[in-house]
């Protein structure tokens, strides 16, 4: 047996915490090992001396039982909050609320009318608004070749262009190309 294990056993024996079987085995071991027996004796005498040293305090007279303080403490309402009980109640409430919400949602889903299916027809009306262009006064006389790119020439051409103020865009299906119908 190594010394550390032996010392721990001797401590347990000094504290009276060894079982009878282990006590007997240890006694047999100590009988065969003089050094271990000497160490055991040192532990025992140390524990005895320590017990005597700790017990030197003279015995005090026991004061009377504090019956009055205990009676007052019993009458005083407890300030302690019973957290476990409160938490249990809160959890039960939360679980009930969740259950109710879930049941309500399922009932709502079952009671709601099914959406009506049919051919989808989307009509998109596109309104094209003509922005009035300030009419430029056309130049007097014929347009000279040098005036081909002038602002006056462009204004005159714009005034001659046929107007298409609005049109109807027919879009019968999202998967088809919309067509432009007549004006409004």
């Amino acid at each position: 047996m190594n010394r550390q294990a032996l010392e721990r056993l001797l401590t347990d024996r000094a504290a009276g915490e060894l079982s009878d079987d282990v006590e007997e085995l240890l006694a047999a071991y100590l009988a065969k090992d003089a050094a271990a027996a000497k160490l055991a004796e040192e532990f025992r005498s140390t524990a005895d001396l320590a017990a005597r040293a700790l017990a030197r305090e003279p015995a005090r007279e026991l004061p009377p039982f504090p019956a009055e303080r205990i009676r007052q403490a019993r009458q005083r309402p407890s300030k302690r909050i019973a957290w476990p009980g409160l938490a249990r109640r809160g959890l039960a409430l939360a679980a009930s609320a969740l259950l109710g919400l879930g049941a309500g949602w399922i009932a709502f889903r079952q009671a709601a009318p099914a959406p009506v299916e049919g051919p989808a027809r989307v009509v998109v009306q596109v309104v094209e608004r003509a922005v009035p262009v300030p009419a430029a006064r056309p130049p007097e006389g014929d347009v000279a070749e040098s005036e081909f790119w002038s602002a006056g020439f462009l204004a005159k051409r714009a005034a001659r262009r046929p107007r298409a103020d609005s049109a109807r865009l027919m879009w019968s299906s999202p998967v088809e190309i919309p067509t432009i119908g007549g004006g409004l």
């Binding site: 305090e57 015995a59 005090r60 026991l62 004061p63 039982f65 303080r69 403490a73």
Partner: peptide, 26 residues
């Protein structure tokens, strides 16, 4: 008695062992 001795021995610096003993039971 054992508690009184313990309080007197180990916690003498806190107060009188008799007071601590009564507090203990409250």
């Amino acid at each position: 008695p054992a508690l009184l001795g313990y309080l007197a021995r180990a916690h003498a610096e806190v107060g009188t062992a008799e007071d601590l003993l009564q507090d203990t039971f409250v």
